[in-house]
């Protein structure tokens, strides 16, 4: 597996990315958002994205996209795995990679919105000890705000 930044050269891959899953209606929305909105925003530099590729076939298996509203807090905009490649921890791998990058750049929290029916995504967040609470701006009370806080760094000797 290969993880690398996604850029304008990957537009065709993003426009054809398929992540719809039977009986998971939200995956329709995620797929549409990725195909229709992500290439343009990645190209404009408004969103950053990482892709996980199969090195042998060059296929894009999973992607994560995020914005940096401020230095302390990063906001995950999308985390999706290609149809047929679920259950292989690709999403968790990408989330872990994003967290590594965030913590290395003095970010304190990585936050995301997750629908309360989306058990797989909630499980990934729990795996990283996320604080999960109802999104205060959702009038339907169906969206969870998942916040992963940077683990305390071991203090260096002499400090």
């Amino acid at each position: 597996m290969l993880i690398r930044n996604l850029g304008p050269a990957d537009n065709m891959l993003l426009e054809a990315f398929e992540c719809r899953v039977y009986r998971q209606p939200w995956t329709d929305e995620v797929q549409a958002a990725i195909r229709e909105g992500l290439p343009e925003r990645v190209q404009a530099g408004a969103i950053q994205a990482l892709g996980l590729f199969d090195e042998q076939t060059g296929r894009l298996l999973s992607l994560i996209a995020w914005t940096v509203p401020n230095q302390e807090i990063w906001a995950v905009q999308a985390l999706a795995t290609a149809t047929g490649f679920h259950g292989r921890q690709h999403g968790a791998t990408l989330k872990g990679e994003l967290l590594k990058r965030a913590w290395a750049q003095d970010c304190y929290a990585v936050t995301s919105l997750v629908h309360r029916d989306n058990e797989a995504m909630l499980a990934i967040n729990k795996r990283f000890q996320a604080h999960i609470e109802l999104d205060p701006t959702d009038p339907y009370r169906n969206t969870m705000l998942c916040t992963i806080i940077r683990p305390e760094r071991p203090s260096s000797p002499g400090k």
């Binding site: 929305e29 996209a65 999308a78 629908h115 701006t137 959702d138 169906n142």
Partner: peptide, 10 residues
């Protein structure tokens, strides 16, 4: 859910 869920506008 929230209006900006799954829209890349979080």
């Amino acid at each position: 859910g929230a209006s900006d869920l799954h829209s890349l506008n979080f």
